[in-house]
């Protein structure tokens, strides 16, 4: 018979196999031209499930009603400060899926919240920042950008604080507004200046004549 000597006996108690005292909040950001989607997965560890449930089941009747789910999802959205180019954005709640209370108590329950926000599409180099302040004292965070499905959008960089509660995504939209706007404005200005010079009395005669005849 095999003699099993578990390392646990030597190295201390192992504990259970699932998340215990952290509220894992994982966000995936997907940027397209003119919009971004945020998928937030929230997984409470078994030790903090009562705290999270108390935030959802506000009347304490042991049921997460639709209204309570919606209210909680709205709170998660409000706790996310999303900005682009220094402007605060108001993401729209697209959907919210909740596990059963039993799944949450087991430690396998995952809340999935999907948001979307409109982004300015007239600027070439952009940054999208979010700060997740939802139940900060018990949370662990993950924040990542998905590789854009649109080849016209390129991720330029991702920056985070050490806990990933603050995240900035820099991206570039090919052929976006800034190119056209900048070169268009520069071109128009150039034409105005040229016209002024051509028509001024100081311009050479052949230029003035050509401008008036042509």
């Amino acid at each position: 018979m095999k003699r099993i000597l578990a390392a646990g006996l030597l190295l201390g108690h192992l504990g259970f196999a699932h998340r215990l005292d952290e509220y894992l909040q994982s966000t995936l950001v997907s940027v397209e031209k003119g919009r971004a989607e945020l998928e937030v997965r929230l997984t409470p560890g078994v030790a903090i499930v009562p705290m999270v449930l108390a935030e959802i089941d506000r009347n304490g009747d042991g049921v997460m009603s639709e209204a309570e789910q919606r209210e909680y999802a709205d709170r998660v959205v409000r706790d996310l400060v999303v900005t682009a180019g220094g402007e605060r954005l108001t993401p729209r709640l697209v959907s919210a899926k909740f596990p059963t209370i039993e799944e949450m108590r087991d430690g396998s329950g995952e809340i999935l919240i999907e948001l979307e926000t409109v982004l300015r599409s007239d600027v070439r180099n952009r940054s999208l920042t979010f700060e997740n302040g939802h139940m900060r004292q018990i949370s662990a965070y993950l924040a990542n950008a998905l590789v854009p499905s649109d080849p016209g959008v390129r991720i330029a960089g991702q920056y985070r604080n050490s806990s990933q509660s603050v995240y900035r995504l820099d991206y570039v939209v090919a052929g976006a507004g800034s190119d056209w706007a900048v070169w268009g404005c520069a071109g128009a200005l150039g034409l105005l200046v040229l016209g002024r010079v051509v028509l001024s009395k100081r311009a050479p005669k052949f230029l003035r004549r050509a401008a008036l005849e042509g």
Partner: peptide
């Protein structure tokens, strides 16, 4: 990387 990665990013689901 200069930040903590608490779990799998592309785990189940």
């Amino acid at each position: 990387l200069n930040y903590r990665v608490a779990d799998l990013v592309l785990g189940p689901g």
